[in-house]
Design a protein around this nucleic acid. Structure first.
Lengths: 192, 192
DNA sequence: CGCGACGTTGATTTGCCTCAACGATTGTGG
DNA sequence: CCACAATCGTTGAGGCAAATCAACGTCGCG
């Protein structure tokens, strides 16, 4: 049973019984209600989170008070303020639950321990990081070269499972446009 | 001597004599002249590059033919089309030499071999990846929340060493604005 | 039912783009 | 070493995508 959980989390990696126990000892479960935040800007970031189920977002608040969504996370995604997590600095982001959510917590310290005990975990996280890097790069390219309408269409195609769970103003804050502009874009699309 | 090179490239990691030889066997040196490209869009990406000296940029060309600079690299930086490099896919970017440039080449295959032979190299590259991830995230936040003028000021503060070596239209294509707009921004700044 | 949150629509503004022309600087061949 | 061309940067006029500001529907829920 717990084997199953571990092989679900760490896909494409197989572990011995001892390794699984090592990992399980370092994972903590936790639940949050819709609307709650599991990390606030300025807090110290010591954890990253694996989403068992639910929906969350990390957002950044700029000096004028506007929120900018950096990442969504649903079942089987990982989430944190990674910039702060990696550098052991204070969070610049807030992580908010958009739905009731269940998570596994793993701390930076425990990660580093596990890397030494189970090197293939480091490979797993390196590859995960490589994928996140690629998706961030894709987003930079999109913001440099695509219109708001193109970015919206690409978003709903890429993340249909997320779109169902979130409000339009979440999408707008992810795309970097206002809710009014998003509304007009949606209208324009349905009119065709 | 060659020890020095290796400890320069892989900062904060120390190696045995055998490890250094393993690494040196996998590194290849190469030079390019200003204006030459070391990777073109649609080519297969098998290498990443460590910059001994010189200046390069990776850029993406959109469907309308506009160039968008994703990354610059100077002495002691690494460069590649990492999205393609990690996934063993064709490049979507072009890497161009802005100055005469000397590089070390290391291939994906050799990297993976070295990861197995010298695990602390995997740690080194994981951490490098974490830093790149953080800087990409910073750029996404900037593009979502800052004006062109703010992004320009931030760029010249963050990368004064790069600014010296490149043309204004390189900066413009990095910031996601036109050369005309950049010119007006620069005028506005000097007028104060 | 009534209130607050969410989404839509219209009018106006604005930041940046486009197009066009023209200086300034750099590079190159005679 | 100059002359000229090419490249690069600046300036102006006009346009457009998206923001802002304001008002008004609509939906869900205590």
């Amino acid at each position: 049973m717990e084997n199953l959980i571990i092989s679900l989390i760490f896909k494409d990696v197989s572990f011995s019984k001892e390794e699984i126990n090592l990992i399980l000892n370092k994972l903590e479960s936790v639940s949050f209600k819709k609307g709650e935040t599991l990390l606030k800007a300025n807090q110290t970031v010591t954890n990253q989170y694996y989403v068992k189920n639910g929906c969350l977002r990390t957002y950044f608040m700029d000096k004028s008070g506007k929120e900018h969504t950096i990442q969504f996370a649903i079942k089987d995604w990982w989430i944190s303020d990674y910039t702060a997590f990696f550098s052991s600095k204070k969070a610049i982001m807030t992580i908010e639950c958009i739905q009731d959510t269940e998570l596994y917590i793993i701390s930076r310290k425990n990660m580093e321990k596990l890397y030494l005990e189970i090197p293939k975990l480091e490979t797993f996280f390196r590859k995960k990081m490589e994928k996140s890097f690629a998706s961030f790069q894709k987003r930079i390219i999109a913001s440099l070269s695509e219109s708001a309408k193109e970015r919206y269409i690409s978003f709903i195609k890429t993340y249909p499972n997320i779109e169902q769970l979130i409000k339009n103003y979440h999408i707008a804050s992810y795309l970097g446009i206002t809710t009014e502009s998003l509304s007009r874009i949606r209208k324009e699309i349905t009119e065709n």
